[in-house]
């Protein structure tokens, strides 16, 4: 609906409709959804060499029945990579939105998204560190700690879920229903992945955990870039 300047007989309904239409135009001008999705996909893909080539450490072990014991294995570089990469990504995203706001001439509402993303990156770092320094419960042995809800929760504390939760905040600040739908699908997928047990001796065992979220983010980025309306030149 195009804006029609001053008409002497504006009905209340027309005025309210005009306000809604202008509000929608501002929201569309403030959106830059394709960029965070692209940056976060790039960060997710950049993690692959760290998982593959960085040295592994053996964490605390717990002796089970017979000759079995369960040890927590972790990659120290991964513990550093994710919080650092995510915080840098959110700084880049904030810079993009501020620069876009200047170019388009409308303010930006990206701050809650960036703050949430950075806080979740910190929480993820804490959860990953705790997991690496505490012994894992023994599976199929009636180990009481296996049933602790905090352990189940910790298994869902992955970089992809941190990205997905922050995307829900972006959907809210951008008032973007399509992004909300995308975020829900993304979160559902990565939560299902996080709950799955990987039985693999391959050194590339981690690839599905990175490639699936990265592919979803790239697809989303491409889709939102295609749906982006042309901005009027000032």
């Amino acid at each position: 609906m195009a804006f029609t300047p001053a008409s002497p007989a504006d009905s209340p309904r027309e005025l309210v409709a005009t306000v809604r239409n202008l509000t929608r135009q501002v929201r569309v001008a403030q959106r830059g959804t394709w960029f965070p999705l692209l940056v976060l996909a790039a960060v997710t893909l950049a993690a692959a060499p760290v998982y593959r080539f960085a040295p592994r450490h053996l964490g605390p072990c717990r002796d089970g029945a017979g000759a079995h014991s369960v040890c927590a294995g972790y990659i120290p570089a991964v513990l550093i990579f994710w919080p650092l990469a995510l915080v840098l990504a959110y700084a880049l995203i904030a810079r993009f939105y501020v620069s876009q706001a200047r170019r388009r001439g409308v303010g930006t509402r990206v701050r809650p998204y960036v703050i949430t993303g950075a806080v979740l990156a910190g929480a993820l770092a804490a959860a990953s560190w705790w997991r690496a320094t505490h012994p894992l419960p023994l599976p199929n042995t009636g180990d009481a700690s296996a049933a602790h809800p905090h352990l189940t929760l910790l298994s869902f504390a992955t970089p992809a879920t941190a990205i997905g939760l922050a995307l829900l905040v972006l959907a809210w600040v951008e008032a973007n229903r399509l992004l909300l739908a995308f975020s829900v699908v993304f979160l559902g997928t990565v939560l299902a992945q996080a709950g799955a047990v990987i039985h693999s001796a391959s050194r590339w065992y981690f690839l599905p955990q990175l490639l699936i979220p990265a592919a979803l983010l790239l697809l989303g980025s491409g889709g939102f870039a295609l749906l982006r309306p042309a901005q009027p030149k000032p």
Partner: peptide, 30 residues
């Protein structure tokens, strides 16, 4: 406030928090 253009300016500014003159001019076609 009731005048259509001024109501438009206020609505845009409220949503954008901060808006540039040229964005208002283009969006309101003035």
């Amino acid at each position: 406030v009731h005048q259509r253009v001024r109501l438009g300016i206020l609505a845009i500014t409220a949503e954008a928090r901060r808006v540039e003159f040229s964005f208002l001019r283009t969006t309101l076609d003035l």
